[in-house]
Nucleic acid binder design. Structure first.
Lengths: 200, 200
DNA sequence: GCGTGCTTGTCGGCCGACAAGCAACTTAGG
DNA sequence: CCTAAGTTGCTTGTCGGCCGACAAGCACGC
C-alpha cells in the first residue's frame, strides 16, 4: 500500500521542495483570493504543510513577500542585446505583452503584488519602487539612443518612458479585473502600431 | 475664550459635516499611510470624532469604502460634448493628466483605492471593475467614430481603448511610488505627441 | 420632553510571532 | 553494515494585539 511514495530524500531536497511549494502556494492563494488572503495558515495549508512552515522558511510575512517578488523577477525576458533605439523599445513592449498572454497566472500575481505595493503595503513598496525605476530607465536609455540616431521622434525620453511603462503596467492591471481574456493578437498589433507610429 | 466656535447648528448640518469630515479623514489616512491603515479608530480620530463615527454614518467598512469611491467620481471632467473622434480622445487624455497635476492628493487616493481593488479587496472590486469598463467604453466609442470619419488610424477601437486607459491609470499609479512629482508640462506634451501621431 | 447624533463598553474572530517539542535525516563509532 | 547520538526540518501550543460590529447610554438640537 505504501507504493513508494516516500523514497529517502536528503535534507537539502526536503528544504528546497518545501520552499518551492510554499512559494507556489502563495501564488495560488493570491491569484484566487487576493493578496490579503495570504496568511500563514492559508499558505501553509495550500502547500500541504502546517501553518508554521512559512515562519520556519521565511521568518516573517515580509520575508515571504520579498521571496515571492524575487521569484517573479525575470518573467519578462529582456530584448535582444543587438537591438537598440526605437527597435529595442518596440521589441521590449511586445515581449511584455507576450508574457501577459503566455503566463496569465504569474503575470496576474505580479500585477496584484504591484497593486498591493501601490495601495500602501510597507513591505512591498520599496521593492516595486526600485523595479519601476529600473524598468523606466531601460526604456529611457533606449529612447535616448533613438533620439541620438534619429530613429525616434522628438520625445522627451523620461516622459515617454513613464508613459510606456504606465501603458504596460496599466494593461496588466486591467486584465486582473476583466473576466475573459482579450484578443491578444489584436492587442499586441494595436499597441505596436500605436507606439510604432507614435515613436517615429 | 469661547470665540463663538459653536454657533447653533441644525441636525442636518451636524450630520452633513460629520460625513464630510469622515470622508476627508479617510482620504488623508489613505494618502499618508495606505488603504490598509483605514480603520474605524484611525479615521474617527483623524476626523475629530470617536471610533464609532464610521459605523454610525456608513454602517460598515464596506459602506465607507463605497462612499469614498463615489465621492471620488467626477474628479476628471468630461471632454466637451462638441468634440468627437480623435480630438475627443486626445482632449480626454489631457484632461486626465491635468487632473493628476492639479489634484495630486485626491488622484493619489483614487489610484490607491483602485490598486486595492486589483490586489483583491472584495468590497472595492466590483466598483472599480465597472468604472474601468465604462472608461474604456467612452474611449472606444470616440475611436469608433474616429475610424468612421477617417480621423483615426486603422486601430482596433477596443484594443486601443484598453491601451489608453492602461496608460492613464499606469501613469497615475507610478506617481504614487515616486517621491517627487515629474515635469507635468513635458509629460502632457509627450503623451499628446505620442498618441496624437499614433492615432493618425 | 422627544428624537437624532454621537460615544463608550464589549464581544468574537483572526493574525503574526515565538518557543518548545516531535519527526526525518545524517554521521560516526563499533 | 548497524545503531545511536547529533543535526536539521517541521508542527503544535500559545500569547498579545488589532479589528469590525453591535448595543446601550449620553449629549445636542428640535
Amino acid at each position: 500500500m505504501t507504493g513508494a511514495p516516500t523514497r529517502r530524500r536528503t535534507q537539502a531536497e526536503r528544504r528546497a521542495e518545501a520552499e518551492r511549494r510554499v512559494l507556489e502556494a502563495a501564488r495560488e492563494v493570491i491569484g484566487e483570493h487576493g493578496v490579503g488572503a495570504v496568511t500563514f495558515a492559508a499558505v501553509g495549508a495550500r502547500a500541504g504543510y502546517s501553518r508554521g512552515i512559512v515562519t520556519h522558511h521565511f521568518g516573517s510575512r515580509r520575508g515571504l513577500m520579498e521571496a515571492l517578488a524575487r521569484s517573479l523577477q525575470g518573467l519578462v525576458p529582456p530584448a535582444p542585446a543587438e537591438l537598440d533605439g526605437r527597435e529595442r523599445v518596440l521589441a521590449q513592449v511586445d515581449l511584455y505583452l507576450a508574457t501577459l498572454e503566455h503566463h496569465p497566472r504569474d503575470t496576474r500575481v505580479f500585477a496584484m503584488l504591484w497593486a498591493e505595493a501601490i495601495a500602501g503595503d510597507p513591505d512591498l513598496r520599496p521593492i516595486f519602487a526600485e523595479r519601476d525605476a529600473d524598468f523606466r530607465d531601460s526604456f529611457a536609455r533606449a529612447l535616448r539612443t533613438a533620439a541620438a540616431d534619429g530613429t525616434g521622434a522628438g520625445l522627451d525620453p523620461d516622459a515617454a518612458a513613464m508613459a510606456i511603462v504606465g501603458l504596460l503596467r496599466g494593461v496588466g492591471l486591467q486584465l486582473v479585473l476583466v473576466e475573459k481574456a482579450p484578443d491578444f493578437a489584436r492587442l499586441r498589433q494595436t499597441i505596436a502600431l500605436l507606439l510604432g507610429t507614435g515613436l517615429g
